[in-house]
Nucleic acid binder design. Structure first.
Lengths: 193, 193
DNA sequence: TGTACATCAGTGAACGCGCGTTCACTGATGTAC
DNA sequence: TGTACATCAGTGAACGCGCGTTCACTGATGTAC
């Protein structure tokens, strides 16, 4: 049956939230339209009332994931200032919990490889998300430096690489060693002159 | 018809080489058994004379990719010494050609995210490959340092993160900016005391 | 060395399954009067 | 405000397709004598 405008907007929000989580947990290829719609508490047929294709869902879900992160960063920035927000972002990024639970974590670490093989809309969402995040990190962590933008991109790459390579490790020792080593390197980015 | 022992060994080698390339180009989920067997110049039915499953192929192909890299590193080490081999490995890693052609490149940068979601044998191949590669980098780049092992893991994570995040970028400017920034950070790993 | 036979690598058709997508239908919502 | 009707969000069956895997078959290879 037909749903009200608000109900439909709420459905779309629910689909996107579950998609953003599931894609990060299982990869773009590892999640089906049925998986997403079931998680959102609906049947799969209605999916195409909200999105033109699974690809479009992936692009929107990626935007959604980046937007959540930006929102949390901004809230923290309002409350504690840019520098503290950046430091807190980095410390949360490097916690074992982030390695263990990709579903709410960084989409770059979880999906970077698949995004590189995805179509235009997904890549565009990635570019925008990374640029936006790098801008925040640049201001918060390297505000006074002339090469703040470059250093923020390097920090982002180190963080994503650390969590991705740690997640792939089967042995707990290797996993923790990678997280400790990459984390130390990432923290050093902040200290440099 | 039946093939000779050498012909069969050669078939297996051909299957693994194409699989190792295709998986890095299109991801583990983006390559089918038919794709691999066609690339190797055979029909798909014979696949199961060589491997028990696609999962087993993925694990063996990953071993194959890591082994090629280790072999090249060792050859370089014999010819030019450990330090030069490490430096040359890093410089080749950071070339735009590596970002553009994943097929012969680092399996960590190309497949890290998918490996994290794969089964035991793939993860085991990853652990062994990363450990082996880190040992070589530790000796070549940080031989005299007490924390050489940790620094090698951090360098590996930075390199993989840089190439993965650069590959995902749609815009050429962002891609080059990430590669330059991550590359500068990776090279700094070598300079530190 | 030559012969007869068992083995088995590779072929190609076939399998069941899950995928993305489509569509006729339903009935509550939104709109026109 | 009340009524009649058009709209359309969500349902669930159905579609064609490609997937991983199986299997009967073929004929060259390997082996036993």
């Amino acid at each position: 049956m037909r749903q009200s405008r608000e109900a439909m907007a709420e459905s779309r929000r629910r689909i996107l939230d579950h998609a953003a989580r599931l894609f990060r947990e299982r990869g773009l290829a590892g999640v089906s339209v049925v998986d997403v719609m079931s998680a959102a508490g609906m049947t799969h047929g209605g999916f195409y009332k909200h999105f033109a294709s699974k690809d479009e869902l992936a692009a929107e879900a990626l935007k959604n994931a980046f937007a959540s992160i930006a929102r949390a960063f901004d809230d923290d920035m309002q409350a504690a200032g840019p520098s503290a927000a950046a430091r807190s972002y980095i410390e949360r990024y490097l916690q074992p919990g982030h390695v263990e639970r990709p579903g709410q974590g960084c989409p770059v670490a979880a999906l970077g490889g698949e995004i590189a093989r995805a179509g235009g809309p997904v890549r565009a969402a990635y570019d925008q998300g990374v640029t936006k995040l790098a801008r925040r990190l640049a201001q918060g962590a390297f505000g006074q430096s002339v090469d703040a933008g470059e250093r923020a991109l390097a920090l982002l790459a180190t963080l994503a690489g650390t969590v991705m390579t740690a997640r792939a490790a089967q042995g707990g020792d290797l996993r923790l060693a990678i997280l400790a080593a990459g984390g130390a390197a990432a923290r050093k980015h902040l200290e440099a002159e």
